[in-house]
Protein backbone atom coordinates (compact mmCIF):
# COMPACT_ATOMS: atom_id res chain seq x y z
CA UNK A 1 0.00 0.00 0.00
CA UNK A 2 2.67 2.49 1.08
CA UNK A 3 4.92 1.23 -1.66
CA UNK A 4 2.16 1.81 -4.14
CA UNK A 5 1.53 5.29 -2.78
CA UNK A 6 5.11 6.31 -3.41
CA UNK A 7 5.34 4.69 -6.80
CA UNK A 8 4.43 8.07 -8.17
CA UNK A 9 7.06 10.75 -7.55
CA UNK A 10 4.38 13.40 -7.25
CA UNK A 11 3.24 12.00 -3.94
CA UNK A 12 6.68 12.62 -2.53
CA UNK A 13 6.68 16.10 -3.97
CA UNK A 14 3.32 16.90 -2.40
CA UNK A 15 4.55 15.59 0.92
CA UNK A 16 7.73 17.64 0.87
CA UNK A 17 6.19 20.85 -0.43
CA UNK A 18 3.40 20.64 2.17
CA UNK A 19 5.98 20.11 4.90
CA UNK A 20 7.92 23.10 3.66
CA UNK A 21 4.81 25.20 3.68
CA UNK A 22 4.06 24.08 7.23
CA UNK A 23 7.63 24.92 8.19
CA UNK A 24 7.27 28.35 6.65
CA UNK A 25 4.04 29.01 8.51
CA UNK A 26 5.58 27.97 11.81
CA UNK A 27 8.91 29.61 11.31
CA UNK A 28 8.60 32.71 9.19
CA UNK A 29 7.01 36.04 10.06
CA UNK A 30 6.14 36.51 6.40
CA UNK A 31 4.42 33.23 5.57
CA UNK A 32 1.33 33.38 3.36
CA UNK A 33 -1.92 33.65 5.31
CA UNK A 34 -4.24 30.62 5.41
CA UNK A 35 -6.86 32.26 3.20
CA UNK A 36 -4.22 32.88 0.53
CA UNK A 37 -3.03 29.28 0.67
CA UNK A 38 -6.56 27.97 0.42
CA UNK A 39 -7.50 30.30 -2.41
CA UNK A 40 -4.38 29.42 -4.39
CA UNK A 41 -5.00 25.69 -4.03
CA UNK A 42 -8.69 26.01 -4.84
CA UNK A 43 -8.23 28.25 -7.87
CA UNK A 44 -5.47 26.01 -9.22
CA UNK A 45 -7.65 22.93 -9.08
CA UNK A 46 -10.64 24.78 -10.54
CA UNK A 47 -8.56 26.25 -13.36
CA UNK A 48 -7.20 22.82 -14.17
CA UNK A 49 -10.77 21.46 -14.21
CA UNK A 50 -11.92 24.22 -16.57
CA UNK A 51 -9.05 23.55 -18.97
CA UNK A 52 -9.83 19.84 -18.90
CA UNK A 53 -13.39 20.74 -19.86
CA UNK A 54 -12.34 23.12 -22.63
CA UNK A 55 -9.92 20.62 -24.14
CA UNK A 56 -12.30 17.71 -23.49
CA UNK A 57 -9.62 15.70 -21.77
CA UNK A 58 -10.96 12.53 -20.22
CA UNK A 59 -8.04 11.26 -18.15
CA UNK A 60 -7.88 13.82 -15.42
CA UNK A 61 -5.32 14.15 -12.70
CA UNK A 62 -5.12 16.84 -10.05
CA UNK A 63 -1.78 15.99 -8.47
CA UNK A 64 0.37 18.12 -10.76
CA UNK A 65 -1.75 21.26 -10.35
CA UNK A 66 -1.71 20.67 -6.61
CA UNK A 67 2.09 20.69 -6.73
CA UNK A 68 1.95 23.88 -8.78
CA UNK A 69 -0.28 25.52 -6.18
CA UNK A 70 2.09 24.56 -3.35
CA UNK A 71 5.07 25.97 -5.25
CA UNK A 72 3.20 29.22 -5.80
CA UNK A 73 2.31 29.43 -2.11
CA UNK A 74 5.97 28.97 -1.22
CA UNK A 75 7.44 31.53 -3.58
CA UNK A 76 4.91 33.97 -4.96
CA UNK A 77 3.88 37.23 -3.25
CA UNK A 78 1.35 39.76 -4.41
CA UNK A 79 0.15 43.03 -2.98
CA UNK A 80 -3.50 42.18 -3.67
CA UNK A 81 -5.47 39.02 -3.21
CA UNK A 82 -6.55 38.90 -6.86
CA UNK A 83 -2.96 38.57 -8.00
CA UNK A 84 -2.81 35.03 -6.67
CA UNK A 85 -5.58 33.67 -8.90
CA UNK A 86 -3.98 35.57 -11.77
CA UNK A 87 -0.68 33.78 -11.19
CA UNK A 88 -2.60 30.51 -11.02
CA UNK A 89 -4.42 31.10 -14.30
CA UNK A 90 -1.19 32.09 -16.03
CA UNK A 91 0.55 29.02 -14.60
CA UNK A 92 -2.11 26.49 -15.59
CA UNK A 93 -2.89 28.34 -18.81
CA UNK A 94 0.74 28.13 -19.90
CA UNK A 95 0.60 24.40 -19.35
CA UNK A 96 -2.38 23.88 -21.64
CA UNK A 97 -1.77 26.56 -24.22
CA UNK A 98 1.99 26.62 -24.76
CA UNK A 99 2.82 23.13 -25.92
CA UNK A 100 5.11 21.52 -28.41
CA UNK A 101 5.20 17.92 -29.47
CA UNK A 102 2.85 16.83 -26.70
CA UNK A 103 4.93 18.47 -23.93
CA UNK A 104 4.26 21.79 -22.25
CA UNK A 105 7.12 24.21 -22.57
CA UNK A 106 7.13 25.97 -19.19
CA UNK A 107 7.12 24.72 -15.65
CA UNK A 108 3.67 26.02 -14.67
CA UNK A 109 4.55 27.60 -11.31
CA UNK A 110 7.63 29.24 -12.77
CA UNK A 111 5.62 30.55 -15.70
CA UNK A 112 2.99 31.95 -13.33
CA UNK A 113 5.62 33.79 -11.33
CA UNK A 114 7.59 35.12 -14.29
CA UNK A 115 4.56 36.21 -16.31
CA UNK A 116 3.21 38.11 -13.30
CA UNK A 117 6.62 39.73 -12.76
CA UNK A 118 6.67 40.76 -16.43
CA UNK A 119 3.07 41.95 -16.57
CA UNK A 120 2.80 43.59 -13.16
CA UNK A 121 6.29 44.36 -11.93
CA UNK A 122 4.88 46.86 -9.45
CA UNK A 123 2.51 44.43 -7.80
CA UNK A 124 4.27 41.10 -7.28
CA UNK A 125 7.53 39.87 -5.90
CA UNK A 126 9.41 36.82 -4.70
CA UNK A 127 11.03 36.78 -1.26
CA UNK A 128 14.16 34.68 -1.66
CA UNK A 129 15.30 35.81 1.76
CA UNK A 130 12.38 34.37 3.68
CA UNK A 131 14.15 31.04 4.04
CA UNK A 132 17.37 32.48 5.29
CA UNK A 133 20.40 30.37 4.71
CA UNK A 134 19.96 27.55 7.10
CA UNK A 135 22.25 24.66 6.61
CA UNK A 136 20.07 22.04 8.19
CA UNK A 137 17.10 23.05 6.16
CA UNK A 138 19.17 22.81 3.02
CA UNK A 139 20.47 19.47 4.09
CA UNK A 140 17.03 18.09 4.82
CA UNK A 141 15.71 19.46 1.56
CA UNK A 142 18.48 17.90 -0.45
CA UNK A 143 18.06 14.49 1.11
CA UNK A 144 14.33 14.46 0.69
CA UNK A 145 14.36 15.98 -2.71
CA UNK A 146 17.02 13.60 -3.99
CA UNK A 147 14.68 10.83 -3.03
CA UNK A 148 11.86 12.41 -4.97
CA UNK A 149 13.94 12.96 -8.01
CA UNK A 150 15.43 9.55 -8.12
CA UNK A 151 11.84 8.37 -8.36
CA UNK A 152 11.14 10.88 -11.05
CA UNK A 153 14.32 9.74 -12.81
CA UNK A 154 15.31 13.32 -13.47
CA UNK A 155 17.39 13.89 -10.35
CA UNK A 156 20.35 14.75 -12.46
CA UNK A 157 19.15 18.13 -13.71
CA UNK A 158 18.79 19.61 -10.21
CA UNK A 159 22.28 18.48 -9.37
CA UNK A 160 23.64 19.70 -12.71
CA UNK A 161 22.08 23.09 -12.05
CA UNK A 162 23.27 23.37 -8.44
CA UNK A 163 26.72 22.23 -9.50
CA UNK A 164 26.91 24.79 -12.29
CA UNK A 165 25.51 27.55 -10.09
CA UNK A 166 27.90 26.90 -7.25
CA UNK A 167 30.78 26.66 -9.69
CA UNK A 168 29.93 30.13 -11.02
CA UNK A 169 29.62 31.56 -7.51
CA UNK A 170 32.94 30.02 -6.63
CA UNK A 171 34.67 31.38 -9.71
CA UNK A 172 33.28 34.83 -8.96
CA UNK A 173 34.47 34.68 -5.36
CA UNK A 174 37.92 33.52 -6.40
CA UNK A 175 38.15 36.23 -9.03
CA UNK A 176 37.11 38.92 -6.57
CA UNK A 177 39.28 37.48 -3.84
CA UNK A 178 36.24 37.10 -1.60
CA UNK A 179 36.22 34.64 1.30
CA UNK A 180 34.52 31.31 0.63
CA UNK A 181 31.90 32.17 3.22
CA UNK A 182 30.22 34.38 0.60
CA UNK A 183 29.51 31.74 -2.09
CA UNK A 184 28.62 29.28 0.66
CA UNK A 185 26.20 31.77 2.15
CA UNK A 186 24.64 32.30 -1.28
CA UNK A 187 24.32 28.61 -2.01
CA UNK A 188 22.47 28.03 1.26
CA UNK A 189 19.40 29.87 0.09
CA UNK A 190 16.22 27.89 0.61
CA UNK A 191 14.58 29.47 -2.40
CA UNK A 192 17.45 28.25 -4.57
CA UNK A 193 16.95 24.68 -3.39
CA UNK A 194 13.21 24.80 -3.95
CA UNK A 195 13.88 26.12 -7.42
CA UNK A 196 16.40 23.39 -8.16
CA UNK A 197 14.43 20.49 -6.80
CA UNK A 198 10.89 21.46 -7.67
CA UNK A 199 11.02 23.75 -10.68
CA UNK A 200 13.94 23.22 -12.99
CA UNK A 201 13.66 19.48 -12.35
CA UNK A 202 10.09 19.32 -13.62
CA UNK A 203 10.37 16.21 -15.81
CA UNK A 204 7.69 17.40 -18.20
CA UNK A 205 9.51 20.56 -19.25
CA UNK A 206 13.15 19.49 -19.32
CA UNK A 207 15.02 17.79 -22.16
CA UNK A 208 14.55 14.06 -22.39
CA UNK A 209 18.17 13.16 -22.94
CA UNK A 210 20.66 13.36 -20.09
CA UNK A 211 23.17 15.38 -22.10
CA UNK A 212 20.36 17.70 -23.10
CA UNK A 213 19.54 18.22 -19.43
CA UNK A 214 23.16 18.94 -18.60
CA UNK A 215 23.27 21.56 -21.33
CA UNK A 216 19.92 22.97 -20.20
CA UNK A 217 21.01 23.23 -16.54
CA UNK A 218 24.28 24.93 -17.44
CA UNK A 219 22.57 27.47 -19.69
CA UNK A 220 20.02 28.30 -16.97
CA UNK A 221 22.81 28.73 -14.42
CA UNK A 222 24.87 30.98 -16.69
CA UNK A 223 21.90 33.12 -17.71
CA UNK A 224 20.72 33.42 -14.10
CA UNK A 225 24.23 34.38 -13.01
CA UNK A 226 24.44 37.13 -15.62
CA UNK A 227 20.96 38.42 -14.79
CA UNK A 228 21.72 38.45 -11.08
CA UNK A 229 25.22 39.83 -10.98
CA UNK A 230 25.31 42.03 -14.07
CA UNK A 231 21.71 43.18 -14.34
CA UNK A 232 20.94 43.06 -10.61
CA UNK A 233 17.74 41.12 -11.15
CA UNK A 234 16.59 39.62 -7.86
CA UNK A 235 14.42 36.93 -9.46
CA UNK A 236 17.16 35.93 -11.88
CA UNK A 237 16.82 32.15 -11.59
CA UNK A 238 13.11 32.22 -12.37
CA UNK A 239 13.57 34.40 -15.43
CA UNK A 240 16.47 32.29 -16.62
CA UNK A 241 14.47 29.07 -16.41
CA UNK A 242 11.51 30.67 -18.17
CA UNK A 243 13.55 31.78 -21.15
CA UNK A 244 15.72 28.68 -21.39
CA UNK A 245 12.59 26.50 -21.38
CA UNK A 246 11.90 27.87 -24.86
CA UNK A 247 14.94 25.98 -26.05
CA UNK A 248 13.79 22.57 -24.80
CA UNK A 249 12.25 21.48 -28.12
CA UNK A 250 15.52 22.29 -29.92
CA UNK A 251 17.58 20.47 -27.34
CA UNK A 252 15.23 17.51 -27.68
CA UNK A 253 15.78 17.57 -31.43
CA UNK A 254 19.52 17.39 -30.99
CA UNK A 255 19.51 14.78 -28.23
CA UNK A 256 16.72 12.36 -28.96
CA UNK A 257 15.32 10.25 -26.17
CA UNK A 258 12.06 8.82 -24.83
CA UNK A 259 9.54 11.31 -23.52
CA UNK A 260 8.89 11.31 -19.80
CA UNK A 261 5.71 9.90 -18.32
CA UNK A 262 4.75 10.21 -14.68
CA UNK A 263 3.99 6.49 -14.47
CA UNK A 264 5.81 4.14 -16.73
CA UNK A 265 3.37 1.75 -18.29
Amino acid sequence: MIKELFQDARHFQILILSSLLALLILWSDFAPEPHIILSVIATTLITQFIFYKIFKIKSRDYRSPFITSLSLCLLFKGSFLWLYPLAVVLAIGSKFLVRYNGKHIFNPANAGIVLCLLLLPDQVWVSPGQWGSVIWLGFVLICLAALVLSRAQRADIALFFLGAWFFLLLVRALWLGDPLSIPIHNAQSGALLIFAFFMISDPMTTPDHRLGRLLFACVVAILAFVLQYVFQLREAIFFALFFVCLSTPFIDMIFESDQYQWRKT
Partner: peptide, 14 residues
Protein backbone atom coordinates in the same frame (compact mmCIF):
# COMPACT_ATOMS: atom_id res chain seq x y z
CA UNK B 1 7.06 54.71 -2.93
CA UNK B 2 5.89 51.11 -3.10
CA UNK B 3 6.26 49.35 0.19
CA UNK B 4 8.40 47.49 2.67
CA UNK B 5 12.04 46.84 1.90
CA UNK B 6 13.53 43.46 2.65
CA UNK B 7 16.93 41.84 2.28
CA UNK B 8 17.11 39.13 -0.37
CA UNK B 9 20.13 37.33 0.98
CA UNK B 10 19.24 37.34 4.66
CA UNK B 11 16.11 36.36 6.49
CA UNK B 12 13.86 39.00 8.03
CA UNK B 13 12.13 38.50 11.34
CA UNK B 14 9.81 40.82 13.18
Amino acid sequence: KKGRVEPTNYRTTK
